[in-house]
Lab assay of single mutants.
Amino acid sequence: EPLWIRPDAPSRCTWQLGRPASESPHHHTAPAKSPKILPDILKKIGDTPMVRINKIGKKFGLKCELLAKCEFFNAGGSVKDRISLRMIEDAERDGTLKPGDTIIEPTSGNTGIGLALAAAVRGYRCIIVMPEKMSSEKVDVLRALGAEIVRTPTNARFDSPESHVGVAWRLKNEIPNSHILDQYRNASNPLAHYDTTADEILQQCDGKLDMLVASVGTGGTITGIARKLKEKCPGCRIIGVDPEGSILAEPEELNQTEQTTYEVEGIGYDFIPTVLDRTVVDKWFKSNDEEAFTFARMLIAQEGLLCGGSAGSTVAVAVKAAQELQEGQRCVVILPDSVRNYMTKFLSDRWMLQKGFLKEEDLTEKKPWWWHLRVQELGLSAPLTVLPTITCGHTIEILREKGFDQAPVVDEAGVILGMVTLGNMLSSLLAGKVQPSDQVGKVIYKQFKQIRLTDTLGRLSHILEMDHFALVVHEQIQYHSTGKSSQRQMVFGVVTAIDLLNFVAAQERDQK
């Protein structure tokens, strides 16, 4: 057995438009009618409502009807409940999964919650491996369901041993009777949507819809739904939504950006999952974080739909894509998950301010006199920076000697690579993860907040409520011999709460 199987392995699926269902090699399930009293909570997966979006479509000038398939009504709160249950049931049916076995899954959280929910009911041990950027709410729900959680670096490539995929496979090879159901490759993922989600949409719309818009992560949702719609409703256009920084969209030119990270969760990847059939997507749109969270908040405030950030991405694209539809036509959007997962993220004004998705003037509360002053007023001194090749031991000596707790790590040209902190280095040394002679590049981390000289002290204040420091950066445009230009970030300084307090105190003292 291989040590790991690539999540982007070539698909062996034989589905073709027009091929009889009787030739399918898979076990198919028909939607079942729910009894009045459910035998367990797993029976509350599927049969989610279709809700008309009344205000947002009109606000953006849509002539067509805009409908939302509300997947956050599933038992675990997301569309991923469907595939989690289906993968477990299919693994039980073919004898792969037996009582007492362990389920391991690399996930952005929602599939993990679905699997942990099913594992709690069915009696399996469950280990979820997820990147650090995923919300604390997801972690809390997983723990409450009895799952064990392993976190991995957000910026690790999918084929790196440190990625959530790599760590999951390492655990599988170490733990007896453990299984990775593997949402990236498992046919049960798109089949769950082909058999149930798509049929529900067709039934709820009486077979009449002209466009379907869905955000894409593993691709199982859009693949399964689109294949069924292509068979039953061939005139329906399928629109895929991919965040900026991901590479799922086609044509490839759409993916060209210097951005590699994004805040919206559960969609987009740096590889093409095996289950994603991009041939059934008629057109791709890219979405960005700001519009995703703005539209998610709009869905909550104006439509009462308590959905997550990827739902915002989907609707932001839908109001663009559906401009081509006329009166009497219908566009369906998939709202994948609930706001429950993001209470401390985009639902929080403070978080939105820190990330730059909300401006101070958007909030009406009274601010102190210094709130709208610029960061450049602080008069920061030149920063202490270190090269990635310097040793951890030497870096600790320098920081202690100069009285700093942290320093930016830059390359020879001064471009920011990340940050090192005294606390992080000492804990890594004590844990045996690094040696004093190791290069400081081994303990770089990139989960820090950046701020510009033109940003306000109010925004800085919000950042420092949650973080010990902020890195002050400025952009530099560099022209190359080819005539092309590129933008790079340079370090201007490091600012802490002490710097802000000293500035405010000094100004008030001078005024007296």
Rank of each mutant, 00 (worst) to 15 (best):
E252M: 11
Q489P: 15
T395Y: 11
T389L: 10
S485G: 07
V443G: 13
F503E: 02
N341W: 02
K359S: 11
F346S: 05
R278Q: 06
R452I: 05
V386W: 06
T274P: 04
S485A: 13
E324G: 10
P368L: 15
G493I: 11
Q439N: 13
Q487M: 12
F293H: 06
L399N: 06
L363P: 13
D349V: 08
G458W: 13
L399P: 04
R452Q: 02
I498Q: 04
Q259S: 02
H480L: 09
I498D: 13
W351N: 02
Q302G: 05
K283W: 09
K449D: 12
L429H: 15
L430Y: 11
I444T: 09
S287E: 13
E258A: 07
V443F: 13
Q329V: 05
F295K: 05
K484E: 11
V275C: 05
F492G: 12
V315G: 09
H480V: 09
F346W: 02
A506L: 02
E244K: 09
I444R: 11
R330M: 15
D362C: 02
V491F: 14
D289T: 02
G393R: 13
V410E: 14
A505F: 13
T456C: 10
E290V: 12
R488W: 14
P436Y: 09
M352G: 04
I451P: 13
R330N: 07
K320Y: 13
L305K: 05
D289P: 05
A407C: 12
R297V: 02
P436R: 11
E327S: 08
V434F: 13
I451T: 04
T279M: 11
S381V: 10
L325F: 11
E401P: 15
Q354N: 13
H462Y: 13
G493D: 12
V317Y: 02
I238V: 13
V472I: 02
L457A: 02
G483I: 06
N255G: 04
E360N: 10
Q489N: 02
I398L: 12
L335E: 02
P388E: 04
E401R: 02
I477G: 02
G432I: 14
S461Y: 05
K433F: 13
R330H: 14
A382F: 14
K283C: 13
S287T: 10
L399I: 10
I238L: 04
S427I: 14
E290L: 15
D282P: 11
G304L: 02
E508L: 14
S485N: 02
L276A: 10
F492V: 12
I444G: 11
S461P: 14
E377T: 07
S428I: 14
L276Y: 07
K283H: 02
L429M: 13
D337W: 06
V332W: 02
D349R: 02
V317I: 08
V491E: 09
E303W: 05
P436T: 15
D242T: 07
I390K: 05
I239Y: 09
P251Y: 02
A506E: 09
F469Y: 13
S485D: 10
Q435H: 13
G266F: 06
V241W: 02
V281H: 07
T389M: 13
D455H: 10
L358S: 08
Q302P: 02
Y269W: 04
K446T: 15
C331F: 02
L373W: 02
T496F: 12
R340F: 02
K484G: 08
S287V: 08
T314Q: 11
F295Q: 15
D337H: 02
T294W: 10
G308P: 04
Q376Y: 02
S437R: 11
F285Y: 11
T257F: 09
Q435R: 10
E327T: 14
Y479V: 11
A321S: 06
H462E: 12
L347S: 11
E263P: 02
V315D: 02
M490R: 13
E263C: 08
A506S: 15
K484D: 02
V420M: 15
A497E: 02
F285W: 02
L347F: 02
L325K: 07
C331M: 12
F293C: 06
Q354I: 02
V275S: 02
S313W: 02
L457T: 02
H480A: 12
F271V: 02
I416N: 07
A316Y: 14
R278D: 02
R488Q: 14
L429T: 07
A301D: 10
P436D: 13
N341C: 02
L276W: 02
A321M: 09
Q406V: 02
L453I: 14
K359E: 12
I463G: 11
V332N: 02
L387H: 05
R509C: 13
V415R: 07
Y262D: 02
Q511C: 10
I498P: 10
G423V: 04
Q478F: 14
K402F: 09
V495S: 13
R340S: 02
A431D: 12
Y445T: 15
I416W: 02
A321G: 12
L373K: 06
V410M: 13
H372A: 05
P243H: 07
I396E: 08
L417E: 08
D467G: 11
L378W: 05
D467F: 14
A301G: 12
T395F: 05
G393E: 13
V494P: 09
E508V: 07
M466W: 15
L453C: 10
R278E: 02
T364I: 14
D405F: 10
I334L: 08
L426R: 10
I398S: 11
T260N: 06
K484W: 13
V420Y: 12
R330C: 13
Q302F: 11
E327W: 02
L325S: 02
E401Y: 11
R350A: 14
G493T: 15
G240T: 02
N341F: 02
T274S: 07
T496M: 13
C331N: 02
S287W: 02
L335P: 02
L378D: 04
V494F: 11
G268V: 02
T456E: 15
V504I: 02
G403F: 08
T456D: 13
K367M: 12
T274Y: 04
F293T: 02
R459G: 10
I390F: 02
C392I: 13
K402M: 12
L248V: 04
L464F: 09
H480T: 08
K449W: 12
T257H: 04
M425S: 02
I334W: 02
L500F: 12
I398Q: 07
E263G: 06
K433M: 12
E244W: 10
A249C: 02
R350I: 09
P408K: 02
V472R: 05
E397R: 14
T389P: 13
N255R: 06
T389K: 14
R350E: 05
L501F: 09
L422V: 14
V472W: 11
T279V: 09
T257Q: 02
V504W: 15
D411L: 09
G414R: 14
D510F: 12
F404N: 02
N288Y: 14
V317F: 04
K433L: 12
A311Y: 15
K367A: 12
L335F: 09
G458D: 11
G441W: 02
T391G: 05
G393L: 12
H468F: 10
Y269T: 09
I267K: 06
V280A: 12
V281I: 04
K286T: 04
M466G: 14
T314I: 09
K446P: 09
G441F: 12
N288F: 09
F285H: 15
Q329D: 06
S310P: 02
H372Y: 11
H468L: 13
H468V: 06
A321E: 04
E360I: 13
C392W: 10
I463V: 12
T279L: 12
H462K: 13
E465N: 15
F295R: 06
K402P: 15
V241Y: 02
Q329L: 09
E265A: 04
E360M: 11
L384Y: 07
V315Y: 02
L325T: 07
V281S: 07
L457F: 10
D282M: 02
L387C: 09
R340V: 06
L254K: 02
L399F: 14
L358F: 10
V440F: 07
L501A: 06
K345V: 02
I272N: 04
M419H: 04
G312A: 02
L254V: 06
